[in-house]
Nucleic acid binder design. Sequence first.
DNA 1: CGGGGGTTTGACGAACGTCAATCGGGGTGG
DNA 2: CCACCCCGATTGACGTTCGTCAAACCCCCG
Lengths: 259, 259
Amino acid sequence: MTGRLKPRLAPRPLDPVVRRLRTLGPLSEAEQELLRTLSDRRERYTTGEELVPEGRVATKPRFIVSGWACRQRVLPDGRRQIFQFLLPGDGFGLPKKPSSPELAAVVALTAVETVDAEPALEAAQSGRAPGLARAFAGVQQLEQGLLLDHMVRLGRQTAYERVAHFLLELQRRLEIAGLGDSQRFPLPLTQEILADALGLSIVHVNRTLQQLRRERLIELRSGVAILLQPQLLSGISDFRTGGPHGGAPFRRVHTAEPA
Amino acid sequence: MTGRLKPRLAPRPLDPVVRRLRTLGPLSEAEQELLRTLSDRRERYTTGEELVPEGRVATKPRFIVSGWACRQRVLPDGRRQIFQFLLPGDGFGLPKKPSSPELAAVVALTAVETVDAEPALEAAQSGRAPGLARAFAGVQQLEQGLLLDHMVRLGRQTAYERVAHFLLELQRRLEIAGLGDSQRFPLPLTQEILADALGLSIVHVNRTLQQLRRERLIELRSGVAILLQPQLLSGISDFRTGGPHGGAPFRRVHTAEPA
DNA sequence: CGGGGGTTTGACGAACGTCAATCGGGGTGG
DNA sequence: CCACCCCGATTGACGTTCGTCAAACCCCCG
């Protein structure tokens, strides 16, 4: 457990959730109030605990209010693939076919606190909270996009590009969540976790990080990451802020378009 | 253009769609009839054509009634990642935030025919067709599962495992669609397309296929694949039919559970 | 003063990519 | 009907990236 999340006598522990959903469309006062009321049925998990086991019937929707978690699968021989990181403000188990099996486990990567999201989801689906409904739709779209980004990393980028791209993604997400600035953010992940997310070995992650450090592109100290030259990192990894994908500086030979 | 899809004076060209959705829950006669009525506004594309460009605002929902397509992204230097194959009976552009940009392009891999899915989607969302609504929810869940499977392949499986796992996935999907049997199915894909889906080079795909052939696990001839020993392939690639994931024959050292 | 988890390093090997040439089959124009 | 052509499949030689093994190191804590 790196990360050092202080219990922090938070004035408004649900802020990350409100903040997150507001980036996806305006929320009425009532809707924001509803979100802040979710504090009931708070649950706490410690590092390594499973919030949702894989394969069982779908669980209730919840928001993460503090700590980091991930969605993952583990192969029978122990290999693990992390699909997605869940940060404060993120939800899981949100929109799903009722009695379907979970497609991936959700596991706490640090100490984690969650709250019940059911009331918010219900309000959205019943039409009583159109702002929330739009926000949830936006969340789903965004998450889908993150999954595809991750897939590109795994399938078509080098270790170097993967790490750079991934760090940029985290920076952006954490800044939106109000947990980091344009360069600096908490990174409570071991290199093993990074490896399992990025499809690399621990050793290779280590060497790649060191290369980025040597080149003065990043700094990593005690659970905090600093992107010294975000611009360069973006160039290296073809990171796009969210606009239309696919500029075309130059082009490979072997993928000829038929038309 | 391999694949040899005959125009086929189909008695009921929408069968794949009906068949596909029925596997996800019962459909009333009226609902099936609605699906068969979609024949209007049929569209045709040839190999390589873009059905949906990336980044533009979301398009109308459509079903594929014949031919193969894929969802993909292309990096500025020409590297390509294919996320998903769309087979007859599959839809695209189905459930989405209205005015959001497309996250990936949809491209025809063979000659392709599509029909407008809007009426079906509307009927489902309006509550007039609960069976269809359940089916669409199921589709989305299934597709999400396929994406995660694909991610595991890319991140944590060897070339050999990836190819085996991928062929098993296609076999199952095509059998469900009524386009193949338990061993044999059409495979109108070049090795370049396979490479871009599986995150490998063309050459390595070729060698991997040959290894599988040498070992008498598969056969490939003129656009048709035959899985000679599906059981063995499943074992090799940890392919699961859809039940709960994660049996545990043996286990690696380095991923120790904290608990 | 130990101990344990995480990080770092070196040496080595295997998997995979690149380059380039060849092959093979189906389509096409003569 | 046949020669030619083009695209995709195949093969060999070689280079690089990345994984594995194992040891050392570091730091925080008990």
